[in-house]
Design a protein around this nucleic acid. Sequence first.
DNA 1: CAGGTTTATGAACGTTTGTTCAATAAATTA
DNA 2: TAATTTATTGAACAAACGTTCATAAACCTG
Lengths: 191, 191
Amino acid sequence: MARPKSFNRETIIEKSMLLFWHQGYQGSSMRDLGKVTHLNPGSLYGSFGNKNQLFLLALEYYYKQLTKGINTSLKSSKSNNSILNGFFQTIVTENESSDVKGCLLVNSLLELANDADMQSHIAAMFTGIEEMFYWVIISGQKAGDFNKQLDPREMAQYLINNYFGIRVQCMTGQTSDYLSNNIRYFLQRLI
Amino acid sequence: MARPKSFNRETIIEKSMLLFWHQGYQGSSMRDLGKVTHLNPGSLYGSFGNKNQLFLLALEYYYKQLTKGINTSLKSSKSNNSILNGFFQTIVTENESSDVKGCLLVNSLLELANDADMQSHIAAMFTGIEEMFYWVIISGQKAGDFNKQLDPREMAQYLINNYFGIRVQCMTGQTSDYLSNNIRYFLQRLI
DNA sequence: CAGGTTTATGAACGTTTGTTCAATAAATTA
DNA sequence: TAATTTATTGAACAAACGTTCATAAACCTG
């Protein structure tokens, strides 16, 4: 295969993802991406096609990272409302430590609202998150962690709605206490 | 004052607002704005300064339109949960009829996350909306429309959170039924 | 109608954008 | 070592960006 590539593909995707997350799609130029990845235009285009394709890889990478935590929690023996609590508290902690940037999926959904292809990709990821919530709730209702009178599908949609809300609130510069309080409040309404 | 302007200032701001709402800040070029307003660059710059200032006027205009409905409802004799219902149902109806575009304030908050000046402008508007919710709740608790055991400030923050959620969901192409169901569900939790 | 003042026009400016490509470098294979 | 294949480099491209400005047009005042 002649000369091998001088970089790790996933590392480049991660660095690109972080820039897109921080600056948005339109706010991240190919020159910016070149700087953070230490790659020249030719290498970026040669290996990733174009800006749009690199962005899709970044979205996919972000989605995997986001859902990794809750998916491993699901297989553990933790109580189901502590799983949800952990998921949302991670968001608060992350928001505290790093520069403000919310959720890459939500940001991108709103920024690229007129790109049908992008929309369907992101919508599918949100369905994945809702499904994750759904199974936590189903298992939580069996274990007695959540109110059994409420419809689990509606509860999952309620959680997605509040997930979006919290992610937007992260962008308004609210304190961690404020966010935690919000989370405690809407989670409490499922018990 | 010599030659008078050939356009109505507010009309231009409204048309610009609609474009920004539809295409985002970065997605709306000065040439696009020129087209929808039927104004040449010189006129736009002469009367509105630059793109950034025109955008701030558009935000302000949008905010006034958004809060107009609920503010007049507040002075009417309608029951307080029907005021909230009306507010959210208007969003669903609007989402149904027009092209998808969510909430200009939320969209802009996420798109321009690194612009501190913009952030503080938008954050102030959100505070305004929360305050609106707060007074509906206070008056609703007195009238027996809402649960008196719950803290009104927390309830208002809960509403803002779900407002953000619904506005994001509007962008995912959900049906009106889905959105209405979501709204019914989170409003129900205040009773 | 003449003089003065403001507005409208649209070509043009310097940047920046996403992207391409010929030239060079570094590996593998024979 | 020579031939071949693939990767890296960075200058260059056309298009689009926000913005400016000299000119022309239109109104008000006297």
